[in-house]
Design a protein around this nucleic acid. Structure first.
Lengths: 194, 194
DNA sequence: CCAAATAAATGACCGCGGTCAACTTATAAA
DNA sequence: TTTATAAGTTGACCGCGGTCATTTATTTGG
């Protein structure tokens, strides 16, 4: 039987997270170095890895939480009444992910269950997002606003696909830098309207 | 004015490429180590980077060439006459990319022009793929097999999006391992049929 | 044929993520 | 209180990608 974590452990973890968030806030995700984190938190390097497994681990916790925040906001807002409004609702999340390729890569990599670690924040967020989209879609189907010949979940996963596509393209093409939500709209229309 | 590369340089490059391909062939992409390559090729480490910039550079050359090979085959084969046949034509390429996450990541990262290096093989392949799809789509539109209310290029880019989506999901979800081409079909139908 | 100039190759060195046997601290059983 | 056991932490060490001042080979102009 596993013992409850002791206070000391929770303090160390909190300190590491605080430092990591501080660095991300001021210098950006790409500037995060494990060695900086442990130095500023005044713990040994091994401690970091004992807590988070690897560098991506701490990023998953922090970025996962931010994604969750965006999902909270999306759930709190009124449901979109049109395809354009879907695109609007997605804008903040899209801009968040678009700010740094590392964020996109990490979310893409963690966004499905890789076996055991189903309790990952990012995985949760991914599933929640699909559910959220599916809810929006079902409602829009009920009003006849969008196509009804496909399952809401499939349509939701399709939105996910276009989201990632637009983000990936955005990181590649330097010229023609339109905001991701704008680039998304044509795909969304072609996918949802009939 | 830039001078033509001298014979020695071409030989070195060829040797490095041969060794790298040999390693990829026998041990897989993920097992590729720059230090192994230079050791077996009997050149110094710096030489490798003088030739390919970074590790991804040599991978882009090798994997880009393989993608080109698949595109050749796809162009040589008769045009798909249905959505199912599109999925069939895509199967070899899809399986190639699905064999290792590193391949997927690299192609995704290099698959757009990042400014100057437009002459990257991978970027070429990406553009060629879109063209190829657009050609297929235009032909299917002419026969009335698929929807005609959207531009072939947009539909082609959508296929690209679903391709990547299916691959990403495939790497995440361990259970329920259906071949990627199979997972693709529902999206393709929802996207192209009307 | 011989310098000066440029291309190519070298390998010691660095940064940084990640490991692990040893050590310290907390907790439970005797 | 003592002692066995587990939880938590430590830092030297490693692997590997990547850099760059220096050295060696090749080309070119006189």
């Amino acid at each position: 039987m596993t013992r409850a974590p002791q206070k000391r452990r929770l303090e160390t973890r909190a300190k590491l997270l605080a430092v990591a968030e501080e660095i991300i806030e001021t210098e950006g995700v790409s500037a995060l170095r494990v060695e900086d984190v442990v130095a500023r938190a005044e713990v040994a390097k091994g401690t970091f890895f004992a807590h988070f497994g690897d560098k991506d681990g701490v990023l998953a916790v922090i970025l996962g939480a931010r994604v969750m925040g965006h999902l909270d906001a999306m759930e709190a807002a009124p449901r979109p009444a049109s395809v354009e409004e879907i695109s609007q609702r997605l804008t903040p999340l899209l801009n968040f992910v678009a700010q740094d390729r590392m964020i996109f890569d990490l979310l893409l990599r963690y966004s499905g269950t890789t076996g055991a670690e189903v309790d990952e924040v990012v995985t949760q967020g991914f599933l929640r997002q699909i559910d959220l989209f599916a809810g929006w879609i079902a409602a829009l189907q009920a009003t006849g606003e969008i196509r009804t010949d496909q399952d809401p979940t499939l349509l939701a996963e399709g939105i996910q696909a276009f989201l990632n596509h637009v983000l990936a393209i955005g990181f590649c093409i330097e010229h023609d830098r339109q905001p991701p939500a704008e680039a998304l709209l044509p795909y969304l229309k072609g996918w949802l309207l009939r």
